[in-house]
Computed example of a mutant assay.
Amino acid sequence: MTDNTALKALADNGVSIWLDDLSRERLTSGNLQEVIDTKGVVGVTTNPSIFQVALSDGESYSEQVAQLAADNSTLDDAVTAMTSQDVRDACDVLLPVFEATDGLDGRVSIEVDPRLAADTDRTVAQAKELRDLVDRPNLLVKIPATVEGLPAITQVVAEGISVNVTLIFSLDRYRAVMNAFLTGLEQAREAGKDITTIASVASFFVSRVDSEVDKRLDAIEGEHADAAKKLKGKAAIANARLAYQAYEEVFSTPRWKNLEADGAKPQRPLWASTGVKDPAYPDTMYVTELVAPGTVNTMPEKTLDAVKDHGEITGNTIEGTYEESSEVLDALERLGISYSEVTAQLEKEGVDKFEKSWEELLAGVQAELDKAAR
Rank of each mutant, 00 (worst) to 15 (best):
N4P: 05
L7W: 06
L7I: 13
G14L: 02
V15T: 14
S16N: 12
D21A: 10
S23R: 11
E25T: 11
R26G: 11
S29C: 01
S29P: 04
E34Q: 15
V35L: 07
V42L: 07
T46C: 03
Q52S: 15
A54Q: 02
L55T: 08
S56M: 10
E59P: 00
E63I: 00
A66G: 12
A81Q: 06
S84Q: 07
D92C: 05
D92F: 03
D92I: 09
V93G: 03
P96I: 04
A100G: 07
T101C: 08
G103D: 11
R107T: 06
V108G: 11
R122Q: 14
Q126K: 13
K128V: 15
R131W: 13
R131Y: 15
V134T: 09
D135C: 08
P137D: 03
N138E: 04
K142V: 10
K142F: 09
I143M: 02
P151Y: 10
Q155P: 00
V156T: 10
V157D: 09
V163M: 11
S170F: 02
R173Q: 15
R173N: 14
R175W: 00
F181Q: 05
T183C: 12
T183G: 05
E190P: 06
G192A: 05
A199K: 03
F204G: 03
D210E: 03
S211F: 01
V213M: 10
L217W: 12
E221K: 15
E221P: 00
D226Q: 15
K232Y: 04
G233S: 07
K234H: 09
A235P: 15
A243Y: 12
E249N: 12
K257T: 12
E260G: 01
D262A: 14
P266D: 14
L270H: 12
A272W: 01
S273Y: 03
S273R: 01
T274M: 03
D278E: 11
D278V: 08
Y281W: 14
T288H: 07
N297M: 01
T298D: 05
E301F: 11
V307F: 08
K308P: 00
D309Y: 01
E312R: 13
I313M: 13
N316M: 06
I318V: 15
G320A: 09
Y322W: 14
E323I: 13
L332F: 00
L335H: 09
G336F: 08
S338C: 07
Y339S: 09
A344L: 13
E347Q: 14
G350Y: 08
W358L: 07
A363K: 13
L369R: 05
L369D: 06
